[in-house]
Design a protein around this nucleic acid. Structure first.
Length: 498
RNA sequence: GGCCCUAUCGUCUAGCCUGGCCCAGGACACCGCCCUCUCAAGGCGGAGACACGGGUUCAAAUCCCGUUAGGGCUACCA
């Protein structure tokens, strides 16, 4: 029990789970798995104003989707306020903390002045010196107050960090920070330390944005005479512009990537590689492989930039490798969103559905792309891509050719790729046309795009009826083109004739 | 402003601790070629980096100092 590894992820439900938080959770999870320890989920919701139930639900949903399952929790800090108050009493009675009656505005004013004067200034409460009677009187008068920690005037504090190494801070730069707010709620510095002690956390692994706060927390551990956990501060993930991740960078939430058709395994894999590497040249890992390889020694100290391009590549690798059956639920969901899902695809046309997925697996980088490509097999309500029309349809005199091909399709027997290819080439040859002209036009007719898998595979899967009906649509389009052209010619003739 | 962290191809990184094997390796992206009905996938090839300046040393991407740049903290947010 005493040497069991216990790590935690402690999000604050003030927003969705973004990639930075997800990576912190992942590293903790990997570490716990690697060491055969426990991964605990704790929710730091002591800031009532910014925390919401909805955010918490989203965070939990994202973690489950990623497969980051926790062994204990979620423990809500808002459920254990009494605990923090007990610790405040402890700190008060041992003289490590004091009531501070100073008004927040006054302190801010002083801080501002000091900053303008370029002075190094930290708050050292004058109320430290208040006598017991004076404190009693103010308390009785119900003067608003906070509880602050008595930071030593001098000395140094060294954080021995598993990732960052030894980092030393001077007490003179640390102010008397608040432990308990005037509404009697604990601040982060208190609740975080208390919970890490109470939960028996052995390694505090979190974002490097907390490194500068660590000396404060070390002071609290010391004042409490508590056993120190180890610390590991992870580099922060930056946006593609090198700036801190924020709303400006668009959607960076885990939820967003799920909606865009990314696979949880790919997201995990990508995030793991953002700040950690196995020391060799492998790039693609399952979660299990990651956890057996993961060590803090191989975590970097510099901040990586989030690269959507590489995530997409990895996602494509996953889509390519995974058996079609595993993609089925996600593709199904995406097709439902697009309104072209048919229950038959899960029943009698299941083989067809699988074949469609397989046809596009090597071409799609996201599930959404996959679904977009499959949609034309389910519905005729797709648009012809303008660039495709311009390159392969307009001005090509295709009407007779396409009509002939549509008719010839009636004779194809059996309906198969080889027969289809022979037929197409025969039709084109018979009219003294390039097979390519017909191929490109057929492609636009069948899927609306100028690129797709091999046209004979597409025809084969599309089937005779749907293929002919899509060619019909193209024929109608071509006829309209012709009439429009004839009309234009007539107008020109009239205009010039006059 | 003060304090702290970081700095290898455009990006993620290997190498740095334990100097020589590094005129720096891999991956994404990019470019070219092959395959080909198109697009992918695949195969082959190309271009591309030790931030800068000092020092230590026979020798520095690797050690030290400084500069610059980026990031973090500096809240009764976490």
């Amino acid at each position: 029990m005493s040497d069991e590894v216990r790590v935690r992820f402690a999000p604050s439900p003030t927003g969705e789970l973004h990639v930075g938080g997800a990576r912190t959770a992942l590293y903790n999870w990997l570490y716990a798995k690697h060491k055969g320890g426990k991964f605990i989920l704790r929710v730091e919701d002591t800031d009532e104003k910014r925390s919401t139930e909805e955010n918490l639900e989203t965070i939990l949903r994202s973690m489950k989707w990623l497969g980051l399952d926790w062994d204990e929790g979620p423990v809500l800090q808002s459920d254990r306020l009494d605990l923090y108050n007990d610790y405040v009493s402890l700190l008060m009675s041992s003289g490590k903390a004091y009531y501070c009656f100073a008004a927040q505005e006054d302190i801010e004013e002083q801080r501002k002045e000091a900053l303008e004067a370029d002075e190094n200034w930290v708050y050292r409460g004058a109320d430290r010196e208040l006598s017991a009677d004076e404190v009693r009187a103010k308390l009785d008068a119900e003067e608003p107050h906070t509880v602050r920690f008595k930071v030593p005037a001098e000395g140094t504090i060294t954080v021995n960090d598993l990732v960052q190494g030894e980092v030393t801070f001077e007490c003179e730069h640390i102010e008397d920070f608040v432990l308990q707010r005037s509404d009697e709620k604990p601040t982060y510095h208190l609740s975080n330390v208390v919970d890490d002690i109470e939960m028996g956390i052995t390694i505090v692994m979190r974002g490097a944005d907390h490194l500068s706060n660590t000396p404060k927390q070390l002071l609290v551990y010391e004042a409490l005479n508590a056993k120190l956990p180890e610390f590991a501060h992870l580099p922060l993930i930056l946006g593609e512009d090198g700036k801190r991740l924020s709303k400006r960078h668009g959607a960076t939430s885990v939820e967003h990537f799920r909606d865009k058709g990314y696979l949880p395994g790919a997201v995990i894999n990508y995030l793991a590689l953002l700040g950690w590497n196995p020391g060799d040249e492998r790039e693609v890992f399952t979660a299990n492989e990651l956890s057996s390889e993961f060590t803090l020694e191989r975590v970097n100290q510099s901040n990586p930039k989030f690269d959507l391009e590489k995530l997409s590549w990895l996602n494509g690798e996953y889509i390519k490798e995974v058996p079609a059956g595993e993609l089925r639920p996600a593709v199904r969901e995406a097709l439902q969103v697009r309104g072209c899902w048919d229950e038959e695809l899960d029943m009698e046309r299941r083989d067809f559905f699988f074949a469609l997925i397989e046809l596009w697996q090597s071409r799609a980088r996201t599930i959404n792309e996959l679904a977009d490509n499959i949609a034309p097999f389910q519905t005729e309500a797709f648009a012809y891509e303008p660039a495709g029309l311009k390159e392969h349809v307009h001005g090509k005199d295709l009407l007779g050719l396409v009509e002939a091909f549509r008719e010839a399709l009636l004779q194809v027997d059996p309906w198969g790729q080889e027969e289809l290819e022979a037929t197409l080439r025969e039709v084109a040859g018979g009219l003294d046309r390039e097979a390519g002209d017909l191929i490109h036009a057929t492609r636009i007719a069948l899927v609306g795009k100028k690129s797709s898998p091999g046209i004979f595979e597409v025809l084969d899967l599309m089937g005779r009826d749907k293929s002919r009906s899509r060619l019909d649509r193209m024929i109608r389009y071509l006829r309209k083109l012709d009439t429009a052209k004839a009309k234009r010619l007539e107008q020109i003739a009239n205009a010039t004739g006059r």
